[in-house]
Amino acid sequence: MSADAHPAAGTRLRVGTGTAVLAVLSIQLVAFAAAVAAGYPGAYAGFAILSAGALAAWRNRGAFGTLAALLGTTLLVALGLPLLLLVARQDPTLVAEMAGDPAVQQALYLSIYAPLLAAFASVGLGVPLALLLARGFPGQQLVESLVDLPLVVPHSVAGLAVLFGFGQGGAFPQFEVLQTMTGMVLAMTFVSAPFAVNAAREAFESVPTRVEWAARTLGANRWETFRRVTAPLAWRGVLTGGVLSWARAVSEFGAVAIVAYSVEFFYLPEGQTVSAQHAPVFIYNAYLSAGLEESGAVATLLLALSAAIFLLVRTVAYDDEEGWP
């Protein structure tokens, strides 16, 4: 709905929705910058909450709508303000210096690369499972609980579980998991697989059974139906699951710190094997040894990198105006 479709808004000001959103965003940015420059960033929190309430009142959303806007914005501010200030309070010189540090580069590289392997494992093995779960089978609820189990296991416990399960004296003595890439990917897969499985399952469930049946009656066998109907209709959901599990693996600290504190891996930019830490572990170390300033700079870099990749994937997957809506 465009703003001018709203009768009350239309009588006061005729603006398109896009323009209105841009205007509000710009005002918020200016207010935030002003509050930071004045040395009172907390003042911005009040401004954001009150302006949301004023906006709701102006759009005639009533007492309930205005209250909802006030409370909702309070939560948004609690979530967003720390991140905004984390970025805003960095010393650009220090961030640039950190970005040039090979150790930081290796940590960031590892934190993109290892989660990618974990996401591939989660999606590759999770999609068939998701398909089975979407179709339903006896004992399905048990399997579903098992899939969700990593979500409730504390991450340090997950790390210990990986060590007990696959480490020395574990199920597969031939694998080395402690302080290895295998261990890191295993730990990441353990915590991130539920996201891939659940998203893919929802995607498969959203494909209407009758549409698949129609394909069968037209001559397509099970595999052809999957290839030509189910997969094209579900791939966005599967990709979303992959991105979620990748993001979850990037953010993993506890399990990785226990299983693979520091690992050796082939570092493509230098064409040689190097030893580095997963960025969240690296940031924690920097915080302990060098303090808030340095760790904040690296954190900003990791945040920017993750956000950039996330936005890129979203753009590729969803800004597809061609084809069916």
Binding site: P208, R210, V211, W213, A214, A215, T217, V229, P232, L233, G323, W324
Partner: peptide, 14 residues
Amino acid sequence: GLGFVFQDYALFPH
């Protein structure tokens, strides 16, 4: 060899 026509059409949306 049976053709099926569904109430909700079941067309391929993509």
